[in-house]
């Protein structure tokens, strides 16, 4: 017992010791060194090819602007660990925090703390839907209201606007996914798409195994299915492999009639092989790299006071040119690109 008391008091001394030295430490480091802006980007999770490309955009834009850039991410896409990461950035006295939020509401408190500390807060790719006041501006990769329509148009053009179709999504509550699915449903009401019938929407939770099983179940349940849209890169890559294995693609050994057309959203590298083999004809994505560039430049400009985000206001990006803020201070980076056999070799990400 005596020893434990000794140890406790030692620990207490350590705590007290640091209390004294704090004042010196904090007063010495309130101004950022050398006037170089410190910018940090927190993706949803590490090991995700999509975010690796966003990071590359940040890196190069920061280099061009002479800013100090770092990135850090949780191992799995969950919100709680992002909180600790943001807290640490506030303590590191960064100037700009850019984040792809894992939850539209779990980060509110800590982002307010960051804003109160004078940090410019920008959401990238995934916005805080319904909680927009907790960040300064948002950068989305493309005009999200048009994604659903473009995807249906792409699939429609591949199947002559006729037949049963299905959607393979990520999780049931993913805000981006749901807004795109809503857009798809709206688009299907147009007369042009009257002969396309959405039979089912299934969820693969962005897990390869689950996405594969759900996709194969679609094949079993709807033998006359003509098309599947998977607006998530994990789902699309898993579905493409499953489709190749089932040989049900147009021209495949077990294709039913004209075969099943698969499309969706994905980075080009993940589907290159399937496009070359003819399993997938074409799919889309925006440029995550451009999104990183725009977010980085916007963050720096907001911190320097060069731009005040406001609906209708314009921001001049040194690389991408003029972009206008939409509702809730949302900027979109660029158009959707369609990848197919003719152009996929030009991309490497």
């Amino acid at each position: 017992m005596r020893n434990s008391l000794l140890i406790l008091s030692l620990a207490a001394m350590a705590l007290v010791g640091c209390q004294r030295s704090t004042d010196g430490a904090s007063s010495g480091s309130t101004t950022s060194s050398g006037g170089q802006l410190k910018i940090v980007y927190i993706p949803k999770n590490s090991g995700n090819p999509y975010f690796n490309e966003v990071v590359r955009g940040f890196e190069e834009a920061a280099k061009a602007a002479g800013a100090d850039f770092t990135t850090t991410a949780p191992a799995t896409a969950e919100a709680t660990s992002q909180i600790d990461l943001i807290k640490a950035q506030i303590q590191r006295r960064v100037d700009v925090i850019a984040i792809s939020a894992n939850s539209p509401d779990a980060l509110n408190v800590v982002l307010d703390e960051a804003k109160a500390a004078g940090i410019a807060v920008i959401t990238v790719d995934s916005d805080l839907v319904g909680n927009e006041s907790h960040r300064d501006a948002a950068v989305v990769p493309t005009d999200f209201t048009k994604v659903g329509e473009s995807q249906i148009e792409l699939l429609g053009s591949q199947i002559n606007y006729e037949g049963e179709i299905a959607i393979l999504s990520a999780t049931r509550d993913a805000p981006n996914q749901n807004s795109w699915i809503e857009g798809m449903n709206e688009t299907l009401k147009q007369p042009k798409y009257a002969k396309m019938k959405l039979v089912e929407t299934v969820y693969g939770d962005d897990e390869p195994q689950k996405s594969t099983t759900e996709f194969e179940a679609l094949l079993a349940k709807h033998p006359t299915l003509r098309g599947v849209v998977s607006p998530t890169s994990v789902g699309l890559a898993a579905a493409a492999q499953a489709l190749a294995t089932a040989e049900a693609y147009p021209g495949g050994a077990k294709a039913n009639g004209p075969g099943l057309m698969l499309t969706g959203l994905s980075t080009p590298n993940q589907l290159k092989k399937f496009v070359q083999d003819g399993v997938v004809k074409g799919f889309q994505l925006w440029s995550p790299y451009d999104m990183g560039v725009l977010a980085c430049n916007l963050g720096i400009a907001i911190k320097k006071g060069e731009v005040t985000p406001k609906e209708g206001a314009e921001f001049e990006d040194p690389k991408l040119g003029k972009v206008a803020f939409g509702k809730n201070n949302v900027l979109s980076a660029g158009p959707l690109v369609t990848f197919d056999k003719s152009n996929i070799d030009k991309y490497n990400f």
Partner: peptide, 8 residues
Amino acid sequence: YGFVNPAT
């Protein structure tokens, strides 16, 4: 599955 992701 045709791909190997470090997380999943």
